[in-house]
Structures are given as C-alpha cells and as structure tokens.
C-alpha cells in the first residue's frame, strides 16, 4: 500500500462518508417531526454538501469548486437564519 493509493482511498472514503452524511441529514429533514428539526437538518445538509464540494475539488484538482463551497456556506447561513427567525416570529401565536 503506497501513500498514493492510501490518499486515493481516503478521498473516496471522504466522498462516500460526506454523501452519506448528506443523505442522513435529508432523512431527518423529511422525517421532521417538527419544523425546528427540519431547519437544523437543512443546516447540517449545507455543511455536508460544502465539505463534499471541497473534497471533490481536491480530487479533481480544480480550485473552482472552492468558490462554490464559499457561496454554499454563506447562502446556507442566510437561509437557516431566515428560517429560524420565521420560527421565532412567524408561526407562533402569542
């Protein structure tokens, strides 16, 4: 086992693990049971996808996927904060 194949294995493993993490988060998002669970799962999904982009960019050797990861991390933040704000103010009748 040369370092070359080891790195290749690690990259493959990381891609599979992150994809699986995204799937698990999606499952939680579908399952709920409550709105805050779904928003939390969405946030975790964003992070997993962002990391997946970084690892894929590393594997393909292009730095362009990096910009996509940056946009995802910022966009995900805005989306989650908006949804959380909505949960705080929008739905609950006081």
């Amino acid at each position: 086992m040369t370092p070359d194949t080891l790195l290749w294995l690690a990259l493959t493993y990381a891609q599979i693990a992150l994809a699986l993490a995204a799937c698990l988060a999606t499952l939680r998002m579908v399952r709920g049971p409550r709105a805050q669970d779904r928003v939390l799962a969405l946030d975790a999904l964003y992070i997993a996808i962002m990391l997946l982009f970084l690892v894929t960019g590393l594997r393909l050797g292009t730095p362009f996927l990096f910009e996509a990861a940056l946009v995802i991390s910022v966009g995900g933040f805005v989306a989650t904060v908006t949804l959380a704000k909505f949960l705080l103010r929008g739905e609950v009748i006081e």
Partner: peptide
C-alpha cells in the same frame, strides 16, 4: 489522507447523531 478521514468521519457521526 488522515485529515480527510478524520473530518469526514466526524461529519458522518454528526449526521448519524442527528
């Protein structure tokens, strides 16, 4: 390789916990 395995495993564990 070690860093990649560590990072992805932790993320997977987090999602599993979720």
């Amino acid at each position: 390789a070690a860093l990649l395995v560590l990072g992805s495993t932790l993320t997977l564990l987090g999602a599993f916990g979720l």
